[in-house]
Computed example of a mutant assay.
Amino acid sequence: MRPDPTEFEGRRILVTAGTKGAGRATVQRFLAGGARVITAARAAPETSTGAEFVQADLMTLEGCEALAQAAMDRFGGVDVLVHVVGGSSAPAGGFAALTDAHWRTELDLNLMPAVRLDRLLAPQMIGRGSGAIIHVSSIQRTLPLPESTTAYAAAKAALSTYSKALSKELGPRGVRVNVVSPGWISTEASDALLERITAGSGGTLEDARQSVLNALGGIPLGRAAKPEEVAELIAFLASDRAAAIHGGEYVIDGGTIPTV
């Protein structure tokens, strides 16, 4: 089904990491719904996403401040804030391979951009008494892969806990907060993870892929999620159709998590 081109008409939406993968798909979904969208990345995209773009490193306070200020200057505010930025660059090898620098990088990428941008932009939502914030976490907060993503999983767990606390604070002020937790998604980032595992193990990419699937316990649906499918869930939670949905975490993992 094609999106309703008026669903987000008049809405001002900020999506972090909107030039690749699930972030780019999310930008495209909101644009298709009539929204004005602004995004940021460390490097300009090779082809335009159709959104306003700010070149900024969101792992830094200065980068977050530059994006927030651009959203205020160009849009006059933000109605929906979607934190997609995240990922892992830590090496394989388990806990012993992770230095303090690796831990800091994972936290600076997967937790702190949301904390900083919420602090910068949520007050104007509170002032209006309306808004929606969506944080993209990961099922790895409950299913960490000890060989390669311990620090990433811990940072995403912190993001989910922070999101719950934020929802309790902002809900009474008219601002909805929800979390989307994907499992395996077919993106450039997932390909990069497989390459790091391959480099650490000396095996093949298929060996690395199978090791990840084994660690996750398999995907009952039989495939990874598509970026567009994750974007559709995010769009739903940002829409008026989800006006009573708040403080929740919504998993899109093809059935990977094996428990209730």
Rank of each mutant, 00 (worst) to 15 (best):
67 L>S: 00
123 P>F: 12
57 D>I: 00
66 A>F: 09
64 C>Q: 00
80 V>Q: 00
80 V>C: 05
71 A>P: 02
150 T>A: 06
42 R>N: 07
144 P>R: 00
119 R>E: 11
45 P>V: 10
115 V>N: 04
127 G>A: 14
70 A>T: 07
121 L>Y: 09
132 A>W: 09
120 L>S: 10
61 L>T: 05
74 R>D: 11
148 S>F: 12
27 V>E: 03
65 E>N: 06
114 A>P: 06
132 A>K: 09
28 Q>I: 02
93 G>E: 09
81 L>R: 00
118 D>K: 12
48 S>T: 10
40 A>R: 03
70 A>S: 13
118 D>M: 13
97 A>P: 09
39 T>L: 07
81 L>H: 04
136 V>N: 05
86 G>P: 01
151 A>G: 02
105 T>S: 15
130 S>T: 13
81 L>S: 00
137 S>D: 09
26 T>R: 03
47 T>A: 14
141 R>W: 01
109 L>N: 02
118 D>C: 15
82 V>Y: 04
104 R>M: 13
60 T>E: 09
52 E>S: 03
32 A>S: 11
32 A>N: 13
145 L>H: 06
108 D>E: 12
45 P>Q: 09
43 A>Y: 15
111 L>K: 07
75 F>K: 01
50 G>T: 01
119 R>V: 12
59 M>L: 11
125 M>Y: 11
76 G>L: 09
64 C>Y: 08
95 F>K: 10
52 E>I: 08
46 E>W: 13
59 M>W: 10
135 H>I: 06
63 G>S: 10
143 L>F: 01
128 R>P: 08
113 P>V: 14
125 M>L: 12
83 H>I: 03
122 A>E: 11
51 A>L: 04
107 L>P: 12
32 A>P: 10
80 V>K: 00
84 V>S: 05
92 A>M: 08
119 R>W: 12
133 I>K: 04
75 F>R: 00
90 A>R: 00
129 G>E: 11
100 D>S: 15
42 R>T: 07
30 F>P: 01
82 V>T: 03
32 A>R: 14
42 R>G: 07
119 R>S: 14
43 A>M: 15
87 G>C: 12
53 F>Y: 06
29 R>I: 04
38 I>F: 10
62 E>F: 07
129 G>W: 13
126 I>G: 08
93 G>S: 13
109 L>M: 12
25 A>E: 02
44 A>C: 14
103 W>N: 04
59 M>V: 09
86 G>N: 03
